[in-house]
Simulated scan of single mutants.
Amino acid sequence: MNLAKAIAINKLRSGDTVIDATMGNGNDTVFLAGLVGKEGKVYSFDIQDIAIENTEEKLKSANIFSNVKLIHDGHENIDKYVNEKVKLVMFNLGYLPSASHEITTKAETTITAIKKSLEVLDRDGVILLVIYHGHDNDKMERCAVEKLASNLDQKEYNVIRLEFINQMNNPPLLIAIEKR
């Protein structure tokens, strides 16, 4: 979703540390690495071998090596790998395009990942959740994410939800959580 990328461009500076919580085909990992530059750091998570392979190939094509750590693990384990404050965490929830639709992000692990992301999120940092909700599991995940986000303390977080109202077939929505 271009709005999520626009927020990332506005928030990030060279040298920042970020997390791509759902590596997928590597597009966001490469995008974020470009924004934080060689002085920054990107932690990128996925459970699928094909995601790691696709992302490695994209990073090689973009000549990006030193500042990206590809992690073959679920985003619910962020705390095992990230021990520093981050400026941004990006999630694309759903399934990996052009791969099995049976393998999707799940409400339980996503909620755990969001809670752990909130712990490492720096002041004025943001969590971006692009939610694709085309089938039953995705709808449950959307409800769980919306419930968590809507119950965050307004004194600590600003939370917005942006969604298309003129598109059919379950268009994605964006939830952004900014730490005050």
Rank of each mutant, 00 (worst) to 15 (best):
R161V: 15
Q154Y: 06
T110L: 00
P97D: 01
T112W: 00
Q154W: 00
T105R: 08
F31P: 11
Y95I: 03
S61W: 01
G40A: 06
L3I: 15
G37W: 13
E76C: 01
E102P: 00
E163K: 14
K69E: 15
F45Y: 09
A4T: 10
E156M: 09
A149N: 04
I127A: 10
D16S: 13
T104Y: 08
L32H: 03
Y132C: 09
N67D: 07
G34T: 03
K85R: 15
E146W: 07
D79R: 05
K147Y: 06
K115E: 12
K115Y: 01
K5Q: 11
N92W: 13
Y157W: 11
A99F: 04
N54K: 14
K147A: 11
L59A: 14
I165Q: 05
N83S: 15
F65A: 04
N2I: 07
H135Q: 08
L174W: 14
I165K: 12
Q48Y: 07
P171Y: 08
K139Q: 13
M90W: 00
A99G: 14
C143I: 13
T29M: 08
K60T: 14
K5G: 03
I175F: 12
E119V: 03
D79Y: 00
N67R: 05
A51H: 10
Y95Q: 06
N63V: 05
I78H: 01
E141Y: 08
A51T: 11
G40K: 04
Y157G: 09
K38P: 00
P172W: 04
L32N: 06
H72E: 05
E84H: 15
N2H: 14
H101P: 07
G37A: 05
E119L: 06
S14C: 14
T29L: 02
D122H: 09
N166F: 00
E146R: 10
T105F: 04
A176G: 08
V42D: 00
N27L: 05
V86L: 09
G74T: 03
P172L: 15
V30R: 06
